[in-house]
């Protein structure tokens, strides 16, 4: 699927790697921002009521599709995000090559497998004040009783359409944003997080 060596970061011009090295570790930063490394993203559409379709997907991915709205399912090296009643986003590291088998496995099931890896950048947001930063631009209820690790949501963050995925209860979020909005959203996040102290961390964390 995606060729990682060809991948170009939409945030390359911000020099984030250099900044993460230079800024060292001010331990008191309330917010840690990073650009997540390139990952394979596949948009999957199909009939979730069709058992054969579900079985074929589970066979390839090693994890079943999440049926409940706005939830995720994590398998070995693969995460599946619910996008709609018949739509999912399959995310994996670029070296996970079994996604390529998805299309052949689903032939004849009326499913659509679309590679969308380079359509979105993924911004990692962690730190003690990460939730407060999101609350400045997002109308979702992000309180732990309503939104916790393993949940995802498509919503607006600072008026930009994003897929918000909570990956940990620290809290930690992965924010998927269209690459044309990546620069805008990054600068918005850094501005919103300014009062808590921002640290840019390496792309591989």
């Amino acid at each position: 699927m995606a060729d990682p060596f060809q991948w170009q970061s939409p945030l390359a011009h911000l020099g984030l790697a250099a900044r993460s090295n230079r800024e060292g570790d001010p331990g008191d930063a309330g917010v840690h921002l990073s650009e997540r490394p390139a990952r394979t993203q596949v948009n999957l559409r199909g009939d979730s009521a069709d058992d054969a379709f579900n079985e074929a997907v589970t066979m390839v991915l090693g994890v079943g599709l999440p049926a409940r709205p706005n939830t995720t399912a994590a398998g070995e090296g693969v995460t599946v995000l619910w996008l709609g009643p018949d739509e999912w986003l399959v995310v994996a590291a670029p070296d996970v090559d079994r996604l390529a088998a998805l299309e052949t496995a689903l032939a004849g099931h009326g499913a659509a497998v679309t590679e969308v890896s380079e359509s979105r950048a993924v911004i990692g947001l962690t730190g003690a004040n990460a939730r407060e930063v999101l609350m400045k631009g997002c109308a979702l209820d992000l309180h732990p009783r309503a939104f916790r690790a393993g949940r995802c949501a498509q919503t607006l963050l600072a008026r930009a359409g994003v897929i918000l995925h909570q990956t940990g209860n620290e809290p930690a979020y992965d924010i998927y944003v269209a690459r044309s909005f990546a620069d805008y959203l990054w600068t918005w996040l850094e501005d919103a997080a300014g009062e808590y102290g921002v640290r840019v961390t390496g792309a591989d964390t």
Partner: peptide
């Protein structure tokens, strides 16, 4: 019906 209560802007 799927996502629950959300803002009108969405």
């Amino acid at each position: 019906p799927w996502c629950g209560a959300r803002d009108e802007t969405e």
